[in-house]
């Protein structure tokens, strides 16, 4: 059981570049993600937030540089979970989607039903348990996806603009779920371009522009004393190109 005790934190990018088809998605990114309050990845469209999260998960390999989890450059993703910008719903019921996540995380079969119910209750979807997941609204699917991610009991939870298509009430509800996870010790890394949300959730901020990490600072410092003109412009709401 030594594997279960190995931590994936800190998550370290060392001069990481990612290229595909002539595009540079990430350009010599170095950063360290430590345990603690949520890290919010912010930046305009196409700045590389999704690419960064995919590398954090270990879904893509860097073209240059290294990504390491707790000092290891090879790490099975058993302790990480990711919520994609457009989550995929299995062609099954809502409950079956959660149970699938539990099964893949090695959760004991005889306790899956009870745990599924707990998770659905946590995201407020208990009444929809038997509905086909693909017939739910976008916001409801987003909640299925977070429940399925939480089923893995991840040490690192990666969220890619999860509230982009949610209404304000659903956004607050989602943020409460995320904060609860963070308070119970899960390291949350979340992409967002909603500055209000960043203020509400962030312990620290990673600010990206055109594939580079322009700034990494505590949330307070980022908003009060941005060190780059790009970050200052972004906070003012001016377009960054």
């Amino acid at each position: 059981m030594m594997r279960a005790l190995l931590s994936d934190l800190p998550l370290v990018f060392d001069r990481v570049s990612l290229r595909a088809g002539g595009t540079t998605m990430l350009n010599r990114v170095s950063l360290t993600i430590r345990p603690g309050a949520p890290t919010l990845v912010v930046g305009p469209n196409g700045s590389g937030k999704t690419s960064l999260l995919r590398l954090c998960m270990g879904l893509d390999a860097p073209s240059e540089g290294t990504v390491s989890w707790g000092g290891r450059t090879q790490s099975r993703q058993t302790r990480r979970a990711i919520l994609f910008q457009e989550p995929m719903m299995l062609r099954r019921s809502v409950a079956a989607n959660i149970a699938y996540g539990l099964a893949q995380a090695g959760y004991p079969r005889n306790r899956r039903a009870a745990r599924t119910e707990e998770l659905l209750d946590r995201v407020g979807l208990l009444e929809l348990a038997d509905r086909p997941a693909r017939r739910l609204s976008g916001g409801e699917q987003q909640r299925v996806a977070i429940a399925r991610a939480l089923a893995r009991e991840p040490e690192i939870l990666l969220l890619d603009e999860p509230t982009a298509s949610l209404d304000p009430a659903a956004t607050r509800h989602f943020e409460a779920i995320v904060l609860a996870a963070a308070q119970s010790g899960t390291k949350v890394v979340m992409a967002s371009h909603d500055l209000g949300q960043v203020r509400r959730l962030a312990g620290d901020v990673v600010f990206m522009v055109r594939g580079c990490v322009c700034e990494q600072a505590s949330a307070g410092d980022f908003f009060e004393h941005p060190t780059t003109p790009e970050a200052a412009a972004f906070i003012r709401g001016d377009l960054v190109l």
């Binding site: 879904l59 993703q77 979970a81």
Partner: peptide, 12 residues
């Protein structure tokens, strides 16, 4: 092509 990322992320 639709399931790849999610299944890979779940370690299937």
């Amino acid at each position: 092509s639709e399931y790849r990322d999610e299944l890979t992320a779940m370690g299937v």
